[in-house]
Amino acid sequence: MGYLGDAMDQRQACHEPAAGEISLCTDQLCLSYGSKQALEGVSLEIKPRAVTAIIGPSGSGKSSFLCCLNRLTDLTAGSAVSGQVKVGSTEIYGTQRHDPVQLRRQVGMVFQRANPFPFSIWKNLALPLRHHGVRDKQQLRQRIESALQRVGLWDEVSDRLNTPAGALSGGQQQRLCIARALVLEPSILLMDEPCSALDPISTQRIERLILELKERYTIVIVTHDLAQARRIADHVALFWSFEGKGRLIEYGPAPQIFHHPTHELTGAYLAGHI
C-alpha cells in the first residue's frame, strides 16, 4: 500500500479493493477549467474507514480535488478531467459512461456552508430518500431517525421535526447536512471545510462526530485548520500550487507528516513559515 513519497511524478496504480470495502483512489488526476489547469497529476489512494485530511494553502486545488471524487465538477461548464478516479471497481471517468447518480449515492458530500433546503427538518431528510424510491412511511421514519441519531441531533430535534431547518443553529444545520448526506447510506463521505463557518463548540461537536463516523465511513476532509487536521486525521495529503496548478506534494500517515515531513515545503508550511 505504497504512500506517495516525495516524488509527485511517481505513478501509483490503483489497487484492487479488499472484499466488502469500497476503495477510493486517483491516478494521474488532472482537472482544468477551460484553459486554466487547476489540478495536475494527483495520484493517491484513500485509506478506507479512516479520516484523510487534505491540507494546503488557498488555491492549491483541495476543493477541486474533492469535487472530482463525486463528479461535482460536471456542474461547472468547461471543466475537463483526465486521469483515473476509481471508486470501488468503477472507473468514474471511464469510457463506459458511469451514471453520476449511482456514484453520488456511494460518495456523499458535506459543504463548507451548512445549507439545508428551505423546508422542515423532516423534509430535508425525506426528500433525498423519496427521490431514491423510499416511499414507505415506516421505513422513511426509521432511516431519518437513524441518520439524525448518528449525528447526535435526534435528541435535540425529535420533537420539532416539522419546524423549518433554517431555524436551527449553525452547528445544528451542519449536522443536519451531514445527516442528509448519510441518509442515503454512502460508504465514502467528502467534507469540504465543514467547520470553517462554525464556532469552536460546534466545531468540536462535529470533530467528535467525524471520529465516530470513521468507524463506518471513509472520510475525506478538506481543511484550512492545521490543528483540526492534527486532531482528527489519520492520513494527511498536502496540496501545493505551482504556477496556479494544484499538485499533491506529500501524502502519508498523520504522525509522519506532522513530525517527520519529507518534503521541505511541508515542513515549512506546517511550521507556519509560508
Binding site: 453520476p100 456523499g108 442528509r180
Partner: peptide, 19 residues
C-alpha cells in the same frame, strides 16, 4: 448552492426543479 447540494445527494435536475 441548492443545486450543488441536490447534485451531491444524487438528485437529478428534474428532481431538483420539481422537488
Amino acid at each position: 448552492h441548492y443545486r450543488e447540494n441536490a447534485e451531491a445527494l444524487a438528485i437529478r435536475r428534474s428532481g431538483f426543479v420539481f422537488a
